[in-house]
Write a protein that binds this DNA or RNA. Structure first.
Lengths: 209, 209
DNA sequence: TCCTATGTTGTACTGCCAGTACAACATTTC
DNA sequence: GAAATGTTGTACTGGCAGTACAACATAGGA
């Protein structure tokens, strides 16, 4: 079942847009068969029904993300720099696969109920972040926080939701520009924060010209 | 259809756990009928099928969140302080309604495909944040960032994902402690960031005793 | 009190669609 | 060229959402 011939695999991607648009429930197997050109009987021969299709598509996406992020994380730089690279890598893959991302977001519930996918999700998205934050504290490039688990979860959320929104909306400037823009915004947020550098309490507003 | 009698409304909440656990697809109308004690025919008399049930439950949750956050945001404090209050409010509601949150997360796709809910989602979660960030720049309590839209989306993601994870996991210390913990972690992250306060580039690690 | 509007519920039915069964045919491999 | 493996059309089954409807309940207004 993990031996899906390359040709079928590539055809299957034709179903991503459909699923992204209507959700898996709104998509009939016959629709998938028609959109991909793979006969229904063949789909069932190789995959475990609709869930199988979803699992295959999302599994691929998650592997891709985990791979790219893995590369970005494996340099000799300090953790803070690697964190920036990881953010950029994750966003770049997401922006390049908008349909898969939308399918993932839309059928998140189903995805997390498929054991393989739940694990893949975790290792693609959450774990690298968690590790980088810990590394950063160790090498001094990131601050020690009171609740590392909660912070890692928030960082994960910031990146992932921004990525999904970027993937969903698309833009005029093309995918790589989008990825760069969001990536910069996220790093600005999670590294430097939003508080004004000045006083940390009580300030009468000063209008700017 | 928005006139659901109070008694039925309260019974309907009995379906939240079911839906959270199995997803809406995995939940049969007859299961809902049995779990809530409302006969199937009555459900169909008042609501528009399964989607109607989901819409009712989540609509309620979102109204609640929007309400609490609205209160937190309407004080005379500066935007930074109100942002902290909004984070706390949102998390507190989420943590107190774990089943509804799980249902929301699991059936996000369906939810966003229901027009009323999509709008409610936006106004409960995203919009208050967006406004606060703008206010903060205006009153000087928050930093001006290069891409406010992208940053607002990331902040939204940080809060929401953390809230979902808090709601899903639960804990031994009770809901209000959870909310406070996550709330502190998120504010620490989005206000002060994770970069070490020291040098902003190039640092040979310095071990701490 | 009776009459009407509105709500409540059981029962029976319809239609759609995921998934299965299987036989016929194709391709590969040795 | 025979056996194994893969491919596909066709026809069927079962489960469940949603509907139809009649019987019954309740409330309120005259």
């Amino acid at each position: 079942m993990r031996k899906l011939p390359a040709k079928l695999a590539s055809q299957l991607y034709g179903a991503a847009e459909l699923i992204a648009e209507r959700g898996l429930d709104g998509t009939k197997i016959d629709d998938i068969a028609e959109a991909t050109g793979i006969p229904k009987a063949t789909i069932y021969y190789h995959l475990d029904g609709k869930n199988g299709v979803l699992a295959f598509l999302l599994g691929d996406l998650l592997d891709l993300i985990a791979g790219e992020v893995g590369v970005a994380v494996s340099t000799v730089e300090d953790a803070r720099t690697r964190l920036e690279a990881a953010v950029a890598a994750q966003l770049s893959v997401m922006v390049e696969h908008p349909f898969l991302c939308r399918a993932l977001a839309g059928d998140l519930g189903r995805a997390t109920r498929l054991p393989d996918l739940a694990e893949a999700l975790r290792s693609a998205f959450y774990q690298p972040i968690e590790k980088l934050l810990a590394d950063g504290v160790a090498d001094g490039s990131l601050r020690q926080v009171a609740d590392p688990g909660a912070v890692a979860m928030s960082v994960f959320g910031a990146i992932t939701v921004a990525g999904l929104s970027a993937a969903v909306e698309g833009s005029s400037t093309g995918p790589s520009a989008d990825a760069a823009r969001f990536s910069a915004a996220i790093c600005e947020l999670i590294l430097d924060g939003l508080a004004t550098p000045r006083t940390r309490d009580d300030h009468e507003s000063g209008e700017r010209p």
